[in-house]
Simulated scan of single mutants.
Amino acid sequence: MTLSIAGRSAAELGGEGSILLRQRRDHVELDRLMNAWLAADATDPHRERLWQDIVQLVFSHAFAEETVLWPLLRHVTRTGERLTARVEEEHQAINGLIAKMERAGRDDPRREAWAQEAFALIREDIRDEEDELLPRLRETLSDRRLRRVGAAWEAVRRTAPTHPHPAVPRRPPGNAVLGVPLSGFDRLRDLAPVDSPAARRAASAAGTLLVASAAALLVRRALRRRRPGT
């Protein structure tokens, strides 16, 4: 029987720096932030800061998973394809909901319901990862390998996009080729958040242009690889 990582000790999960501990800490922090947002009054200005922290953590965390962890899981276990496909669907649904919220703005009356739906999906995603996916890594990788994967995952997370981009693929190499150019753009947005509808539309258009440019580069690279003699 697969044993969830939720209640296991640090030593059982590979020790300090293990990918399993890093993942669980992010999940605990996400849970704390979501509960704080739900408990805050709608007029509390701190609530918007909580929301930005949630968004940044959700998307940097998921991008690192899709870049580092899920390809590894598909490689080391026969059930990896099925398990990661389900989680990727959850990620895409969360991506779409939060993208709608960013386009609509903080005064949209639908925002509260969308946030509740996104939180439910995030909690489902956490359960799936801690109960099904991450235990498979514990079963197949040594403590040392878990710590090495943790370091790689952390490096990617720290340079990952921090906002939703539904057009970016969920798997390498497309997610890296399209996502990396968006990381710098997102982090500039985080330093100077856009509040007006016009600014949000401009930011969305700029993001779309970056995705399109990176996609064109990916296609050109693929075509060059297929040419005879190259």
Rank of each mutant, 00 (worst) to 15 (best):
M34S: 02
N95L: 09
R47C: 10
V76H: 06
E89P: 04
L38R: 13
L69T: 00
E89Q: 14
E48A: 10
E90D: 11
Q92D: 15
E89L: 11
L73P: 03
A93H: 08
W51I: 10
P71R: 01
R49V: 13
V76D: 08
T67F: 01
W37E: 12
L33S: 00
N35I: 09
N35K: 14
P45C: 07
T79P: 03
H46S: 11
E65V: 04
I54G: 01
L50A: 06
H46M: 10
T43D: 15
L38I: 14
E65D: 09
E81K: 10
F59D: 00
R78H: 07
P71V: 00
L33D: 01
V76L: 11
T79Q: 14
A40Q: 02
T84A: 10
A42C: 09
H75G: 14
N95K: 11
H61W: 04
A39G: 10
G96L: 11
D41P: 03
A42Q: 10
H61F: 05
A85I: 09
D53E: 15
V58I: 12
E89K: 10
A64I: 01
E81T: 11
R47W: 10
T79S: 14
F59W: 05
F59N: 02
R49F: 08
E90M: 02
V28K: 13
R86G: 08
Q52K: 12
A36M: 06
H46C: 09
A85G: 12
E65S: 06
P45L: 06
N35Q: 15
V55P: 04
V28E: 15
S60M: 06
L73N: 04
V76M: 08
L73H: 03
E90T: 01
A39K: 06
G96M: 10
H61D: 07
A93G: 08
L50C: 06
A40P: 00
W70R: 02
T79G: 11
E48I: 04
E81L: 09
R78M: 06
H46Q: 11
V87M: 13
T67K: 01
I94D: 04
E29S: 07
V58T: 06
R78D: 12
V76E: 12
L30R: 02
Q92P: 07
P45A: 07
T43M: 12
E88W: 03
R74P: 09
F63M: 01
Q52T: 12
E66S: 05
R86Q: 11
L72V: 02
Q52A: 14
T79Y: 08
T79M: 12
V28F: 10
D53N: 14
R47M: 14
Q52R: 15
L30K: 01
L83Q: 11
E90K: 00
L72S: 03
V55I: 09
E29G: 05
T43V: 12
